[in-house]
Design a binder for these strands. Structure first.
Length: 479
RNA sequence: CGGGGCAUAGCGCAGUUGGUAGCGCGCGUGGUUUGGGACCAUGAGGUCGGGGGUUCGAAUCCCUCUGCCCCGACCA
């Protein structure tokens, strides 16, 4: 009482044990919970609302570029999966199979989709005949299943929600442009909606998607300086369209195989929000994606006129912002403050008898604990400005973290020292040889995150073997 | 798949040399409260993760299975 040393008693300290902290947030903020199905979580309303906000924002951007939504089956026959060699080799270990149904063993077993390139491509072969049909720019919002050994809510569960876009095009160039266009949308989602700055670039041969010619990625950094792949966009060339026979008659009247892409973001983004923004008070949500942007808490609710005034303000503002009003009678205001802070609500309005007398109320920011007093008539304008400021400030905090935790290494000794110091990203030159990549991973547990578009010249020799190197690679330990 | 932990009320835990289960929080009800996790009263809630064994008797000892968490290897 009064003494608030037990203030965060229910949440593990983020600096002492971030893994446990993460699990605490997921459960205590009621984002998700473990189920009786191993590795699969139940996403609760508050967590799902975040996903819906991500969906709405992203889907709108997709559609502006001509994406059309579809739905394909969750079951894929084994024969389809087998058609592209690299793809099946990449996914086989983590695929779940349906072998029996209706009390009988199936003639051909069906896999539960880990991703849907094979079935999209199969259907495309039926639907495509002329260059005039192209492009197909289809997407689906769905679930997929990957039999992960080690799971963690949102960041790596066996079943997860995502969107997967699958496109085919008349020309190589058009497909490549689409790949990069979608990556740009993902960067927009991460940075503008989630306030998470990302590094964009291309994956190395070792790290690219099974069956792709090129994999592009957006890479985020977590609170503790680890890397988190937040979205990927792939260019396939004709790798799938050839074995799946996706042909069209081109402008010259000849048969040609289409050029293909795919791209996805998943509920992992919710994990990214938790890991990038959270602190010892709990979850911290950027206003644009927060299911509740403003919570209004009456003080001394039983006093004359307090409840009425609070409801009046709530009713006025709720058409403009995603609002909650906390009228619970059984808990104190202090409890409510902490409760909503743990749930990451960006802005809180406190209003009590003293404020009402003066025609004021208090605005408290979740991101930096700042409290200001504002006139009630200026509330609406103030909220708009502050929410925008919170969104920007949260982005800047993460941006600063990336800058602080990104270091340069010219040799393996520097590399190891830097990564051991505080995780983070390492910028280092690389010769292009997969053996060097493997050696670095072995010695430092860091993998190549990407070859960033934003290249810097930091040397002429490979950080590992010392031979000539032209490309700067971002390295890091990952979630 | 390796290494390490854990499993007792919704959550966090205690339970001694084996004797048939308790505490805190939360929850229900009634009341008093309300400016940073309020209080009083009174209730409800458990085949001690599953199976086997030892024993007159097992939450406790032994075997086994399962699940979860963490650290590695593999992946969105």
């Amino acid at each position: 009482m009064g003494d608030n040393k037990n203030f965060v008693k229910e949440i593990t300290n983020i600096d002492e044990d971030i893994a446990q902290w993460y699990t605490d947030i997921v459960r205590k903020a009621e984002l998700a919970d473990y189920t009786d199905t191993k590795g699969c979580i139940a996403i609760r309303p508050y967590g799902y609302a975040i996903w819906e906000n991500i969906q709405n924002y992203t889907d709108k951007l997709f559609k502006e570029t001509g994406v059309k939504n579809t739905y394909f089956p969750v079951l894929i026959p084994e024969s389809l999966l087998q058609k592209e060699k690299d793809h099946v080799e990449g996914f086989a270990p983590e695929v779940a199979w349906v072998t029996e149904a209706g009390g009988e063993e199936l003639e051909e077993k069906l896999c539960i989709r880990p991703t849907s390139e094979t079935i999209f491509t199969t259907m495309y072969s039926k639907w495509l005949s002329s260059w005039r049909d192209l492009p197909f720019v289809y997407n689906q919002w769905c679930n997929v299943l990957r039999w992960e050994k080690e799971t963690r809510p949102f960041l790596r569960s066996r079943e997860f929600l995502w969107q997967e876009g699958h496109t085919i095009h008349e020309t190589e160039q058009e497909a490549k442009e689409r790949t990069l266009q979608m990556l740009e949308i993902y960067k927009n989602v991460a940075e503008k909606l989630l306030a998470i700055p990302v590094i964009t670039g291309i994956k190395t041969e070792t790290e690219k998607f099974a069956g792709a010619d090129a994999t592009y990625t957006i890479e985020a950094m977590t609170y503790d300086g680890k890397a988190l792949q937040a979205g990927t966009s792939h260019y396939f060339g004709q790798n799938f369209t050839k074995p799946f026979d996706v042909k069209f008659q081109n402008r010259e009247g000849k048969q040609e195989y289409a050029y293909q892409t795919s791209w996805g973001i998943s509920t992992r983004l919710i994990g990214a929000i938790i890991m990038a923004h959270g602190d010892n008070r709990g979850l911290k949500l950027p206003p644009k994606v927060a299911p509740t942007q403003v919570v209004i808490i009456p003080i001394a609710m039983h006093k004359e006129g307090v409840k009425e005034k609070t409801e009046e303000i709530y009713n006025k503002l709720k058409t403009k912002y995603r609002m909650e009003i906390d009228l619970r009678e059984q808990v104190s205001p202090g409890y409510k403050f902490n409760d909503w802070e743990m749930k990451g609500v960006p802005l809180r309005i406190e209003i009590g008898p003293r404020d009402i007398e003066k025609g004021e109320c208090i605005l408290a920011r979740r991101d930096n604990n700042e409290k200001i007093t504002v006139k009630i008539e200026e509330l609406e304008k103030q909220i708009e400005e502050i929410l925008e400021k919170i969104q920007n400030d949260m982005y800047e905090v993460c941006k600063k973290r990336i800058e602080e935790k990104t270091t340069i290494a010219h040799n393996l000794e520097e590399f190891q020292a830097n990564i051991n110091k505080e995780q983070g990203f390492i910028k280092a030159m690389w010769c292009g040889n997969a053996e060097c990549e493997a050696k670095i991973k072995e010695l430092t547990s860091a993998k190549s995150r990407c070859i960033p578009f934003n290249q810097e010249h930091i040397g002429d020799t490979c950080v590992c073997c010392g031979k000539k190197a032209e490309k700067m690679v971002i390295w890091g330990r990952q979630y």
